[in-house]
Design a protein around this nucleic acid. Structure first.
Length: 785
RNA sequence: GGACGAUUAGCUCAGUUGGUUAGAGCGCUUCGUUUACAUCGAAGAGGCCGCAGGUUCGAGCCCUGCAUCGUCCACCA
């Protein structure tokens, strides 16, 4: 063993070793109950971030623990490289826009770019010691994933759960696609609240307030509050929209806020979600004046062709000229923007594909009940979301790099034609149904929309399991054992997966759900690129090593967000060093020792005591780990290793190994050291896989046989080595030592200083008597009373 | 506005079904070159357990109300 533990060199070495040996390769034939993890495929981006480090450390701790419990762990790895985020990444890496290169070339460029950047991206996960089966990585855009996704789409189509409908949809004018409610983000924006005169048909005028005067051409009604005395007389009258002249009815609805502006509001198709509600509720006419790219159309007359921003200025100018602009007030309000690009969204009627599922709320809630939630209170979030669902699931996107919706439409009769399951995956743009339509026509219009990313990632269990070739084994593995994920996507990924699983199989997708939190900066604020407070994992890994960073992550409990703490990482590094140092000392005394079980016959009381301590620690460790309370488990390991073993046992046993009274006591000490060190390493192995492997390989591998510490089983202590009453009595020795240390400390003495006599308090004097010589020798005390 | 969570030592957090003097790590103070480790060891200081009521022989833990913070959802002309 070297003198210093060089984590950088060693971590890389063991990572390569694990990979080369295929340590974490899954095979259904291996022994043990299968424990399968529906891992969260990270969205492909240039680099892993600290959130990935922490969430994968949590999963990995669980996976490694289960492996050491003798379970056959399936811990797959995938990347989410489907859809808009990947498009954006590819555009920025190659400095092109998809409009420049065209759809077909762009899709190819995406594939090419992905395979180029993937290895480096994945290396991040290997580096932190994730024990995934990297020999077989899945991708959410692979032909296999496409096949699975299209297959399930067609299944639902046949069940009558897929329909296409023209409907007002959330639409991003910059990305040119429909987006989901989940993709919305709030953004605080400075804007101007304008009071504008509307005419009345019977003469007179009213003032309405709006932040979006560019939508005047789309105005279809004016609303007041039914209990608003000021405006009660207006109800039922007709107003005339300035500049555009359309006549609109004045209606009453209690959604109107009397306090806001003049208390009179215009309703446009569509300014926001409230307009949408009114449109349906009062069956208002449809007046669309904004095109998909976010420009005004012919309905806006002279403003046609201008972007909504410019048109807003022009319209305000015109209103001002005509004396129709009463007043303006700068306000700050929050608007809905697309999370990917920050563009304000529009609501536009477009034709989209939906999965019908609003009728299944009850069933979904029942599925949620069947899951084992960790922590339990997170369940409420899902349940509230399910109860509050208002729309069916819009699964179509007007994008390019995604999984194509596998349908054609007959040019003649309009019937929807689907491919055969065997033909999947298909891209309708580049293939044909291969059969005639029922009406005899063989001309088809291909569907150009692709599926929403969630429509595919909701099938992650199916995609992950598709890597297992043995069909019988694969089917036995569903439902999977565990879904680990963060709390922010409970309403999306977790919900959608649960929903799909019910729609297709009427089963829950997994038994356990484990929810983790987000990494915050050291002040407790959210990390984000824009704030510039994001910590780069690479710097931190360079500085402290993966074991240390994992130690920090392992201290974060379920559900809660937790802070980045360099202090805690330093503590992790100290722990790794301590493990290495204690092992170095121990192994020094184990040279030329070969473990013999009969040595346990000569165990001294301190040996029995430390075995009892380890036994207790292991038992509690297992309880905590089984409940996903790994921060409590690592505390068990810490306090056993640091306090009981290093500070007390090793100090006591030193005299025995340096100057043994006889062979037997030396052998017993060596036996104990061997067992305890190995046991300690095993407790730490899920948390600090590198340093524990280093020590294991250095000494224990030749006797323990297992190729790696990560293939060994938990240190369950042989009952024959546990003597509770002896251990209990010996506890008094520890207590006495503490008292003597305190005395010396208070008298500013070195621990080595000789003391003539001392009196200590003991609970049971009779039982401590036989230990007095031991204590007096150990603590350099002449006489103890 | 609705839901959920949090509030315990200077900081980050434990505290099991209510039961003696409330714990850990870090930080701080003092001491110690003890043959694995100064990346160490020993000792110490430091807490009206957010506030106010209630239940109980007994409350950090149970109940009610309030306050503050956080998260998610809704609203956002």
């Amino acid at each position: 063993m070297q003198k210093q533990y060089d984590f950088k060199k060693q971590e890389l070495k063991w990572q390569r070793f694990w990979e080369k040996e295929g340590l974490y390769k899954f095979s259904p034939q291996k022994a043990g109950k299968v424990f399968s993890v529906d891992t969260d495929p990270p969205t492909l981006s240039g680099k892993m971030h600290l959130g990935h480090v922490s969430s994968y450390t949590h999963e990995d701790i669980i996976a490694r623990y289960r492996r050491m419990k003798g379970e056959n762990v399936y811990f797959p790895f995938g990347v989410d490289n489907n859809g808009l985020p990947t498009e954006k990444l590819v555009e920025s890496i190659n400095s092109v826009t998809l409009f420049e290169v065209g759809r077909k070339n762009f899709v190819q460029l995406c594939q090419k770019t992905i395979s180029k950047i993937l290895p480096e991206f994945v290396f991040g996960w290997k580096r932190i010691g994730a024990s995934c089966d990297f020999s077989n990585i899945y991708s959410t855009i692979s032909p296999e994933a496409q096949k699975i996704s299209q297959q399930r789409f067609l299944e639902l189509f046949k069940q009558g759960r897929i329909y296409q409908k023209e409907s007002p949809t959330l639409f991003c004018p910059a990305c040119q696609t429909a987006i989901a409610q989940a993709e919305l983000e709030d953004k605080e924006e400075q804007t101007v609240f304008n009071d504008i005169y509307f005419g009345l048909e019977d003469g007179g005028k009213i003032v309405i307030s709006t932040t979006r005067p560019e939508l005047l051409a789309s105005c279809v009604a004016v609303f007041v509050h039914p209990q608003d005395k000021r405006h009660k007389n207006l109800i039922g009258k007709t107003a005339i929209v300035p500049l555009f002249g359309q006549k609109v009815e004045i209606l009453a609805d209690d959604k109107v806020d009397k306090e806001k502006g003049s208390g009179i509001v215009m309703c446009c198709t569509f300014g926001d979600a409230a307009d949408l509600d009114w449109y349906f509720k009062y069956k208002l006419p449809l007046r669309i004046s904004i095109t998909r790219p976010g420009e005004l159309n012919e309905l806006a007359g002279e403003f046609k062709g201008f972007s909504s921003k410019i048109a807003r200025k022009m319209i305000l100018e015109k209103l001002r000229e005509k004396g129709l602009l009463v007043s303006q007030k700068a306000i700050s309000h929050s608007v809905n923007v697309h999370e990917r690009c920050g563009t304000e969204i529009e609501i536009l009627p477009t034709k989209q594909w939906f999965i019908k599922y609003l009728d299944l709320k009850k069933q979904f809630l029942a599925q949620s009940d069947k899951l084992n939630w960790h922590p339990q209170y997170m369940k409420v979030r899902l349940d509230n979301w399910i109860k509050g669902l208002r729309w069916d699931w819009c699964v179509s996107r007007q994008r390019y790099f995604g999984i194509p919706i596998p349908v054609w439409r007959c040019k003649k009769c309009g019937k929807i034609i689907t491919p055969s399951m065997k033909a999947l995956p298909v891209d309708p743009l580049h293939s044909s149904p291969g059969k005639k339509c029922g009406c005899g026509s063989s001309e088809f219009i291909p569907e150009t929309d692709v599926l929403d990313t969630w429509a595919t990632s909701s099938l992650s269990p199916q995609i992950a399991l598709s890597l297992i070739k043995d069909k019988k084994a694969r089917e036995k593995m569903f439902p999977m054992s565990l879904r680990p994920q963060a709390h922010d996507i409970i309403n999306f990924w977790l919900f959608y997966t649960l929903a799909r699983s019910y729609l297709h199989y009427e089963k829950i997708p997994w038994r356990d759900v484990f929810i983790s939190g987000h990494v915050l900066d050291s002040k407790g604020e959210k990390m984000s690129k824009s704030k510039g407070n994001a910590v780069d994992p690479e710097t931190i890994l360079e500085k402290y090593g993966a074991d240390a960073v994992r130690y920090w992550a392992g201290k974060a409990g379920m559900g809660d967000d937790f802070r980045f703490s360099e202090e805690e990482i330093r503590q992790g590094k100290r722990t790794a060093t301590k493990i290495w140092n204690a092992s170095r000392f121990a192994l020094m005394h184990l040279e030329n020792y070969s473990l013999k079980n009969e040595d346990s016959r000569y165990l001294e009381d301190e040996d029995k005591w430390i075995f009892a301590k380890l036994n207790k620690a292991v038992k509690e460790y297992i309880v905590k780990m089984d409940n996903y309370q790994y921060p409590r488990a690592i505390e068990m390991a810490d306090s056993f290793f640091w306090k009981d073993f290093c500070d007390n046992y090793l100090e006591i046993v030193k005299s025995r190994v340096y100057e043994p009274k006889n062979k037997e006591t030396l052998r017993a000490a060596r036996f104990t050291i061997y067992k305890i060190i190995l046991g300690t390493l095993k407790l730490y192995a899920p948390f600090m896989p590198f340093v524990t492997e280093e020590v294991y390989q250095d000494y224990f591998r030749k006797t323990e046989k297992a190729k790696s510490i990560h293939l060994t089983l938990l240190p369950l202590i042989d009952k024959k080595l546990v003597f509770p009453s002896v251990a209990n009595d010996f506890e008094q020795v520890i207590d006495a030592i503490a008292q003597i240390r305190k005395y010396k400390s208070e008298h500013r003495l070195s621990m080595k200083a000789e003391v003539e006599s001392i009196s200590i308090k003991a609970k049971n004097k009779a039982k401590i008597k036989k230990y007095l010589p031991l204590i007096s020798k150990l603590m350099s005390v002449g006489k103890i009373e």
